[in-house]
Design a protein around this nucleic acid. Structure first.
Length: 321
DNA sequence: AACGCGGGGGC
DNA sequence: GCCCCAGCGTT
């Protein structure tokens, strides 16, 4: 959970997750959908699928016993260099140095290192430096201390240099380079996407569907969707919707959501609430007849926000046509 | 090596 | 509204 995510954002999810899956066998025997549901809202959902796969391996192949070495941990799904080092050192007392975003920041500033951190050579450089620096007598505390120092003192944009115990020895501070470090080479490419959701309502409820596994929010659930090449105008929305649905229908409402921002995509979303009176072929659609059913399906935050702001649900029953 | 994958916070 | 935060798997 702590991969790419701050502690404050994680704690609530962590407690709920352990509440739901108290041990590795409970996690292993749960369904993937159940695990995703517990992860709902935390983001980077491949982490949920990976920890589920790892639980199955530990439970079924390793007799429920976690590996304690860096190499064995590295073989598990979702566990890379950072996580293998963190578990090996913190949980098993092994001497493996962690290099996370905090470590890159602290080391690059303290030693004034301008090697870019987002290249193979940069990662190797910092990993070797961290391995030189680690306190072999207490690797767990050394690792946690340097990460914590980056998280509370040596902050990305507002570092507390005036109260820093290391300021007199800090290379970056000496040269006025604190905010320039660490150096990154690459920019994130941001893509705009335009989602026109069809919220199809009948006397018998409405429909959701599961997303594919090769796009954002893999295997999570949302509504039937038309993706557009550009921002639609109001008149287009009606034409697009009627082109998609060959049934007698009327657009009851179109809910325009705020821009939904992911680190790599800006999603503009419209939810066209469509009222139909007939049944139809909905092979891959799931007919939701009662909002209580929604509790079993994992939704992305965008859909959660739509469900919160809409009032087409009432009295525990779906309001149909 | 390049790319895709969420969501939150600061200003 | 703009900026920042970055581990892992896949290709």
């Amino acid at each position: 959970m702590l991969q790419q995510t701050k502690v404050d954002q994680v704690v609530g999810f962590y407690k709920r997750f352990l509440d739901h899956f108290p041990n590795v066998f409970d996690l292993a025997s749960a369904s993937e959908q159940e695990v995703l549901k517990c992860w709902q809202g935390l983001g980077y959902y491949s982490r949920a699928r990976n920890i589920h796969r790892t639980a199955k391996i530990v439970s079924n192949d390793l007799g429920g016993v976690f590996p304690g070495s860096y190499d064995a941990l590295l073989d598990l799904p979702g566990i890379g260099d950072y996580t293998a080092s963190a578990i090996a050192s913190i949980a098993f007392g092994r001497c493996n140095a962690v290099v996370d975003g905090n470590v890159y920041r602290v080391l690059s500033r303290f030693f004034g290192i301008e090697v870019p951190i987002d290249t193979g050579a940069g990662r190797k450089y910092f990993k070797e430096l961290a391995e030189e620096l680690i306190d072999e007598s207490d690797p767990a505390n050394y690792n946690q201390a340097i990460m914590e120092f980056g998280a509370v003192q040596c902050l990305p944009r507002n570092p507390n240099c005036t109260s820093c115990p290391l300021v007199s020895a800090c290379c970056a501070h000496k040269h006025g380079d604190v905010l320039k470090l660490p150096v990154k080479e690459k920019k994130v490419a941001v893509r705009n996407r335009y989602f026109l959701y069809l919220v199809v309502k009948t006397e018998d409820g409405f429909f959701i569907r599961q997303r594919s596994s090769n796009d954002v929010w893999a295997k999570m659930f949302d509504f039937p969707l038309v993706e557009l090449d550009s921002r639609p105008i109001k008149k287009e929305i009606f034409n697009i919707v009627s082109g998609q649905l060959n049934w007698p229908m009327a657009i009851a409402n179109v809910v325009k959501m705020n821009k939904h921002i992911l680190s790599h995509q800006h999603i503009y979303a419209w939810f066209a609430e469509v009222v139909c009176s007939t049944g139809f072929d909905t092979s891959d659609w799931i007919n939701v007849r009662d909002i209580a059913q929604l509790e079993q399906y994992p939704f992305p935050r965008l859909v959660e926000k739509y469900l919160e702001c809409t009032c087409f649900l009432g009295n525990g029953q779906v309001v149909g046509g």
